[in-house]
Amino acid sequence: MSFLTLSITLIFVLIPILLSKTLRLGLEKDTIIATVRSIIQLLAVGYILKFVFDSESLFYIFLMVTLMIVVATHNAQKKGAAIKGITWKVGVTLVFVEVLTQGILIGFNITPPTAQYVISISGMIIGNSMVLAILFLNRFTAEVDDHQDEMELILSLGGTPKQAIHSQLIKSIKASMIPTIESQKTVGLVQLPGMMSGQIIAGADPIQAVQFQLLIIFLLLTTAAVTSVMLGFLSYPTLFNDRMQLLRGK
């Protein structure tokens, strides 16, 4: 696609701006900012990726993945600011998910350890893991706020912190995983995943595109489960002290 053709697609940006102006939604400025940011960010990433792919340097691959994890951690930790040490907890979770999934993919020779595969798949894994972490932290902090009486009841009867928070932890883990599982139930029927569509548009064999998409779907299931469970079990102990008391000031 030429840049001239691409510029015609700005029609799709003009439509929401016109609608916003007509209906006085007040979203024109945000739409323009979002458009400009996405153009700059994606073009920059495109050129950086081209450079990294061409160099085939392990150092640049590592640098790219590290940058993704740092940005994702920074974004997700805001939702759990009340949890002590949340930044390193989210960071460790994202690193673990990345190492686990790439370890399996490369270890079993499913994908080659090249920049093209590692960076593309890492982007999907880390991005998904970040969204999962945000969903989990949102729900978990709300559950803890809303059920302090129940938690203190179990503590007051001689229960441990793990027993006191068990119900809230399980509910939060399930709630954060459900969107991933539900969206995968209708994949191919309701929506064609972006990566698969992109491959098909780029001229790839649809069956091969589907195979890759299945790989991603399976990966995202692991990502969802490991992110929620690991973040949950890293987070809950910091809500209590060594006298088994629920700490306030969340």
């Binding site: 009841l153 009867l157 001689g158 229960g159």
Partner: peptide
Amino acid sequence: PVELRKSVGMALQSAPMV
């Protein structure tokens, strides 16, 4: 803590239930 809470029981106004 567990021993203390077993010997000092507590019932609250809101009577929270699981």
